[in-house]
């Protein structure tokens, strides 16, 4: 454990980098998944298409996706953009299914009541459907956040420094404590972010307080 105490500043610096690299894909995943999830929920033909496509993307192992993106998008293989785009693709793949399920979880009678009192489709989506779908969307966001933070470590294989650096560096220098510190740091960050999302959910959806979110 002496390794940890004498390298606290390194762990701290990598943790900040790690959070920065994970935050964007998580936010983008949510933003992109709202329209794609809606498409998967609303129309039968687009449902098969969208869910099929995200299922396919989800199947691709990360290291292979890193290799496929550069020639397709014209970015550099060893670049942060490659890591962030790949993580965003996985985030969208996870979130789309959850948003679609979340919209399906809204009671049809509530939706009909909104129509009856004069909500147009646009206003109804933002003021009735989406807030009521909130708990399931939040559940998806939590899964996305935790898996993105854990997966970001693979970035070290394409030369992007984050907590994954402790894995390869610890392996090369044969320091067990260093790898262990990396694993623990990733798990702790993931759990803290998960807890923050739960708090944010209670703040934004006060009606779910007191009963367990879906």
């Amino acid at each position: 454990m002496t390794w940890v105490t004498s390298n606290l500043d390194l762990i701290g610096r990598l943790s900040v980098e790690h959070l920065r690299q994970s935050a964007l894909p998580i936010v983008l995943g949510l933003l992109v998944a709202v329209p794609t999830g809606w498409l998967a929920f609303r129309f039968r033909p687009t449902r098969g298409l969208v869910l099929g496509a995200v299922g396919l993307l989800y199947t691709i192992p990360s290291l292979a996706l890193f290799a496929l993106l550069p020639p397709l998008l014209g970015i550099s293989f060893l670049s942060e953009a490659n890591l962030i785009i790949a993580l965003t693709i996985y985030a969208v793949a996870i979130m789309t299914r959850f948003v679609s399920d979340a919209l399906a979880s809204v009671e049809p009678s509530v939706r009909q009541a909104a129509v009856a009192v004069g909500y147009g489709p646009w206003r109804r989506f933002w003021q009735v459907d989406l807030p009521l779908a909130g708990p399931v969307v939040l559940a998806g966001l939590r899964v996305t956040a935790v898996s993105t933070i854990s997966l970001a470590t693979v970035g070290i294989l394409i030369g992007i420094d984050n907590l994954g650096y402790l894995f390869t560096n610890g392996y090369q220098r044969q320091i067990v404590a260093e790898i262990l510190a990396g694993v623990v740091a990733v798990v702790v960050i993931a759990l803290v972010v998960d807890g923050l999302l739960v708090l944010l959910g209670r703040l934004l959806m006060p009606w779910t307080r007191g009963r367990r979110a879906a």
Binding site: V146, S150, T153, L163, F167, V186, D194
Partner: peptide, 9 residues
């Protein structure tokens, strides 16, 4: 919890 454990690590 398993979801949070980085598989590479």
């Amino acid at each position: 919890a398993a979801r949070a454990v980085p598989s590479f690590g």
